[in-house]
Amino acid sequence: MSKRSSVDPSMSGSRWQRLSGWVWGLLRDAGELVLPQTCVCRLCRRPLPAPPLPFACYVNDLYACLCRECIHSLAWVQPPLCPQCGRPWRHGGLCRFCLRRRHVLQGCSPLVYTGAAQELVRELKFRAVCELGRPLGYIIGAMVRSAMPDWEPQAIIPVPLHADRLAARGYNQAELLSQGVSHFLKKPLLHQALLRTRHTQPQSALSVTERVKNVHAAFHVPHPAVVANKRLLLVDDVHTTGATVHAAASALWHAGATTVRFATLAVAANTADLSER
């Protein structure tokens, strides 16, 4: 039998190799207590300057995940914004997506979905960069505080994935974000309060009307008593036309929630609406 197929390749080296591997492991264990670990920026992959304490102490700090330059290059939303959904909108008043709707849903997002923010969402969504969830959730939480000063949610609900999609990906990026939001706002997080019961296509490939049809009645509240008579905050990663959050919110309204608002990490906007800066 060859070396490669034995159970553990590190067991099958020479005695000296095994001993040095063991000593190295021991030193690593000791070193982790004393020396700070090195970390690289998640976007540009350059090493980050070492903070005074080990990186593990900064779970809520975006500066422990990204470098100064990449944080500078994120596009933050700036007024004029749509008063309902918080999208950059240069004409004032409601944006074209909110004008079309019968029920408007109020919400906010700290970032514009371009450039570095797009890359950041991609990291969170497809590359299992779980450690970004907490700091970005903090940013969303801070945005909720400042954009809706007179409203406080009673619980945080992440926009769910379908069970099959969840099993394929292994995690729900909206849930990672909402962990940070609930930690920042000190409100409980309701994991299983909202479920996605229907398989939906990815929204990104569809037109505006198709998106609405795609997610219509895709959400279900298994125990209405949990959400009834509550102020709820929906958390998602990207807000494009708002079809997904609207479908999720209507399921919660039907279950008896008093108010539902949403917060997302990034919002899609026309470049014309951004160019005034």
Partner: peptide
Amino acid sequence: LQRESAIALNSYGR
């Protein structure tokens, strides 16, 4: 085929 666990423990327990 041969198969191995993507994450495994090495001989010094890591």
